[in-house]
Amino acid sequence: MIRFDRLSVTYGGKSVFANFSFQPALHAITCLMGRSGVGKTSLLRIAAGLQQPDDGCVIRPEGRVGYVFQEPRLLPWFTVEENLMWLLPNRSVQRKARVRALLDAVGMGAETALYPAQLSGGMKQRVSLARAFLMSPRFLLMDEPFQGLDKQTRMNMYGLLLSLWEAEKPTVLLVTHDLEEARTLGHHIIKLTGSPVTGYTELANKRMNMEDEWNEPSIRTEQLA
């Protein structure tokens, strides 16, 4: 299970979340929407353990986390292929084949030997996407991952995300500004409300209580200040 429990977050003296609780559906894609600056990125960072809330706690599922940041965050001194390779355990068999397959899937099969500086913004973002799927994450955080991609690529990415999701059924939190995108991808669409954020409204819910079909994974609790 994953749950944000009575979160309070202040950022630069400004209260961003106040007593905010939210439990995203497991093994489903939840799209997060809301005004820009409302704290969607903060929520993802807290979910990933990169940021601590001032009060409240986060319960996260056990297992690997994938994160598509707003920026690609690729190692500039590694090639596209190396950027994925170094994350995999050295001894894992056929890691090269897996990396190649993923890069092919995001349409970067021909650019594996290039360095990030030689790529366009969209290409870097695709590598970043491939990296997120690489470790078969149980929990995938995506912060406006398709921003800056052209329409065709975006469509391809949607397909890719959905097929990858089909294969592994990770829990996905996807921040987006694009309602169309949210409708295409999201099983749930959530809009954060209030300033500071105190609650949310559910804009859409395509699936009902899917999580009941799944065994509850073991949980990890992080009790925070």
Binding site: R64, V65, R73
Partner: peptide, 24 residues
Amino acid sequence: TDLLEMAKVYETGWIKTIRAIYVP
């Protein structure tokens, strides 16, 4: 710091982090 955060999320371990991020 952005790359270090990324390494943390992907749980690369400190040896890999030093080799792939700190050193270069």
